[in-house]
Design a protein around this nucleic acid. Structure first.
Lengths: 211, 211
DNA sequence: CGGAAAGTAGCACGACTGTGCTATCAACAG
DNA sequence: CTGTTGATAGCACAGTCGTGCTACTTTCCG
């Protein structure tokens, strides 16, 4: 057989097959055989790239965080976190289109498994720490940009923003009919408006400044 | 063998064994044999009460919602939703002690499975609709109690409160060290303060009129 | 050309899976 | 007493599971 030009690429292809199986049959259905079949290869080939099933699932989970991180960095770039970019950045963690929805489904399945799998829990904790840090940065960026100094409890507001973010992600994922993409965006935007010093609770006369 | 006095009680005992297995080994480990062993009974006895494994998991999930609902009703009672009870009511959905933590773990595991199991999805959707309704009622109760009328987008604020609630639940469950019980409570309380018309973010000139 | 290495294929094993099924036991009705 | 029902026990079947392992093909290096 032809040499694989890029080993990492091959591993990503197989992990993509894991994603498809998890989305179709859940993490329970992600057996070695099912993944090999989905990837149109053999058990032996699969085990050549991943010694155990746990390693396979670990890599599949790692891929979720990597992709989200890449999208976020593509938006924010190297520079500082601009208030004008905040909504776009945080949106990248919500399941608002098919690609991000796929990631969120896999993420939820693996986070649940992480409750009883220390390896997956470690990956989850690292991602959580990253997102929590991002939320802190967002709170700082928004409050610093306010015209007059706001009395903000930054750690608390970061925690609250993080909760809104993951809560929206969970609900947009599990109740897409009740919380479609644009509505999830609107809720997030309203929350960010509050952090900007413009309380989300405003008289009707001032409402209607869509995103 | 002695007749079972209360069939429902027996089913609850078996479902409790399901909970213990799910908490220890995840939903993957909740096989018929494992549950029977945990409940200290036989496969035959288990199958006498639950015809299939799906029925067993369905009942275990139903039990989570039932218990949460019972606790909430115990707090709010028959009367109207008083602003003074709002925090205590919403707290009942957070994993702030061992009992509620157990429910949340089982809930997360089964919600993940619900992504590929229509029966569980139906239970999840019903619970979500209930909680969403509760959040709406909370928003209405708090804004109506405000001294001056606030321009509140009730559906949007309900959605945001629901997101905060489930986000906090998820984080308190998966990152208990980063978000201990009293801190989760504090974040929720800060959010409710905002709904009361006392924004969590206030200009320095208006500060000092405590929560 | 020959050998090493990369990659693929898939069998074998022992363990586990859900469910159908029968057998057994306890308790009550008649 | 007998007969019926509730409840338990556990075997049998036909699979699937993860992984160890060998065999094989293809590619590259010297």
């Amino acid at each position: 057989m032809p040499r694989i030009v890029d080993a990492e690429q091959r591993r990503r292809e197989l992990a993509a097959a894991v994603w498809r199986v998890i989305r179709r049959d859940g993490v329970t259905g992600a057996s070695v055989r099912a993944v090999a079949r989905e990837a149109d290869t053999s058990m032996g080939a699969l085990r050549h790239w991943f010694a155990t099933q746990d390693a396979l699932l670990r890599f599949a989970m790692l891929l979720v965080t990597e992709r989200a991180r890449a999208r976020i960095e593509a938006v924010v770039g190297d520079g500082p976190l601009l208030p004008s970019h905040v909504l776009a950045v945080l949106e990248e963690t919500l399941p608002l289109d098919d690609e991000r929805r796929a990631e969120a489904e896999v993420w939820l399945a693996l986070v649940a498994r992480a409750l009883v799998d220390p390896d997956l829990a470690a990956l989850r904790d690292r991602a959580a720490a990253d997102l929590h840090g991002l939320c802190s940065a967002v709170v700082v960026a928004l409050t610093e940009a306010a015209e007059e100094p706001l009395g903000v409890d930054v750690p608390l507001e970061a925690e609250r923003l993080y909760a809104v973010l993951d809560g929206l992600a969970l609900h947009a994922l599990t109740r897409p009919a009740a919380l479609p993409a644009d509505r999830a965006r609107a809720v997030l935007e309203a929350h960010l408006a509050g952090l900007r010093g413009t309380p989300s609770i405003v008289p009707p006369s001032e409402r209607g400044n869509g995103r």
